[in-house]
Amino acid sequence: MSEQLNFEVPTMAELIAKGEESEILFWVGCAGSYDERAQKTTRDICKILHHVGIKYAVLGTEESCTGDPAKRAGNEFLFQMQAMTNIEVLNAYNIKKIVTGCPHCFNTIKNEYPGLGGSYEVIHHTQLIQQLIDEGKLKAEGGESFKGKKITYHDPCYLGRGNGVYEAPRKALEVLDAQLVEMKRCKSNGLCCGAGGAQMFKEPEKGIKDINIERIEEALETQPNIIAAGCPFCMTMISDGVKLKDQDQNVQVLDIAEITVRANGL
């Protein structure tokens, strides 16, 4: 189970040069590209795609921010500039289907790009994992056993409430034979990690507590071995919270893709 990828990740440009087509584009996102912690998830998503033999590709250096944080911060100009530039690239490659590693990219490309000329079938990586499990292409065999481990899943706002995806990530955990425990505030009532709406990039306003602490306290109440995430920003907020609570020795914070990779020994 090495961190390193033992295969090449294909880019769209390379595929086109070889005259090949891809079935699905993996939209990595800024966090997945640059954030060290999120890069692990990115590589794991590639491992899954590679393992099941889906013909996929990434944009590589041709990818740029979807514009989500600009839009949530109120800069519609910058958002639309980013969106239209990205759409131009995506349409030039004749992209039909996209899987994203981030709920924010997922929401933006799926919901906000069509009105600007970019219509694609967009899924989040947890939905892809669920589909692969349903099709029998992914099992929870050959890797680390999660049997009996307590896992609690934190709903990312832009996946859950934002787009109604509550079941796919849970399905991916159900196959593990682990013990799934829900936090008091979950699914449509889930509590934000505190990073959305461009909060990730600024200090919080004056208050009595940081939002991620409020969330992590609730997560720790379930006495989990693992807190599962589906968003690189939630990952940062929750990991920070776990460290601040001095629980990083006892509680792991893992993305659904990482858990899947471990369970399958990829």
Partner: peptide, 26 residues
């Protein structure tokens, strides 16, 4: 927030990283 917006405008990412390094994760 201004810094973040400036980064997206100049580097295509909310942080100050070079677009040329975007694929380094692989």
């Amino acid at each position: 927030i201004n810094t973040m917006l400036g980064n997206i405008e100049n580097n295509g990412a909310p942080w100050k990283y070079s677009p040329a390094d975007r694929f380094n994760w692989a």
